[in-house]
């Protein structure tokens, strides 16, 4: 697949960003499984083509368009690079958005109980080794969740995918929390 068209094939002038999805912009197939290299290659290539230096002598309109293109390109890259953001975006693209800005609580007692226990265990952990163990555990759960998420998307089970995206959100927070605790302990150490 070809990455988004940046320039007019006839006159070579930079084009507006248009309304293509993030996958199309980077020339990737729509799906949860994104290879980092397959994502970075087109991203850096397109970024070079849109570098401001290349537009130094161009008209204000072309400068503005190239900046719009660069902004959309960065947004596409940042979204697809991060598994959580990618999952949220893909659900939205497939017509089953999960509203992460929604107010109020999620209705998943099992997930909440599990996450509360893990956050409490982390808060009560006092040694570096204990925190490292909890961090490793959280990390591997996050990876497992991403595997399940990939399977759910491949199977077209969007209800399950939505559930797993929610879970990944909480696991990501747990990992961040564990990492922050580990760094704090290291600094005090």
């Amino acid at each position: 697949m070809r990455a988004g068209v940046l320039f007019c094939p006839v006159c070579g002038a930079v084009q507006g960003p248009g309304s293509m999805d993030h996958f199309a912009r980077l020339g990737l197939a729509v799906g949860f499984d994104v290879d980092v290299e397959a994502l970075e290659r087109p991203y850096f290539a397109l970024q070079r083509q849109l570098h401001p230096d290349r537009f130094a002598g161009k008209s204000p309109k072309e400068k503005a368009l190239s900046q719009q293109q660069a902004t959309m390109l960065n947004e596409a890259y940042e979204t697809l690079k991060d598994p959580l953001k990618r999952g949220v975006y893909l659900l939205e693209l497939l017509g089953r958005g999960v509203d992460l800005t929604a107010c109020g609580t999620i209705n998943d007692p099992e997930l909440l109980m599990e996450q509360m226990e893990k956050r409490e265990a982390l808060a009560e952990a006092t040694t570096g080794a204990e925190i490292a163990r909890l961090l490793a555990e959280a990390d591997s759960e996050s990876v497992a969740c991403q595997c399940h998420l990939s399977a759910a998307f491949l199977a077209g089970d969007l209800a399950q995918a939505a559930h797993l995206v929610n879970r990944l959100k909480f696991l990501t927070k747990l990992v961040e929390d564990a990492r922050a605790r580990k760094n704090r302990i290291r600094m005090m150490g």
């Binding site: 109020g104 909440l112 909480f170 927070k173």
Partner: peptide
């Protein structure tokens, strides 16, 4: 009462 925010992953 146990609640969690979808927006930020807080519990």
């Amino acid at each position: 009462g146990l609640v969690g925010a979808p927006a930020c992953g807080d519990v």
